[in-house]
Amino acid sequence: MCVAIEAFRHRMEGLGVPRTLITPHLMGRTIGPVGDRRRQRAVVSAALDLLGSATGPGTLTAFEDRTT
């Protein structure tokens, strides 16, 4: 099983990945801004949540930072 993290939703819509977390981050900083460890950890934690909670294929979920 797998979960992907991607910043550009349209790229994943055509690939057919089982689960994807969409982050609002710049190209090349998919997990979060350089040095922003709090944000990065929140993204990775959300991806693990999605890995365990998605109930069907092609799930695309927008990241929401609930730690702020």
Binding site: G28, R29, I31, V34, G35, Q40, R41
Partner: peptide, 18 residues
């Protein structure tokens, strides 16, 4: 960016914490 902070695209350190 990844040279400055690999976790921006390779978050292994965060996975170790989790």
């Amino acid at each position: 960016s990844a040279q400055r902070d690999p976790s921006a695209v390779f978050p292994l350190d965060h996975l170790r914490d989790l």
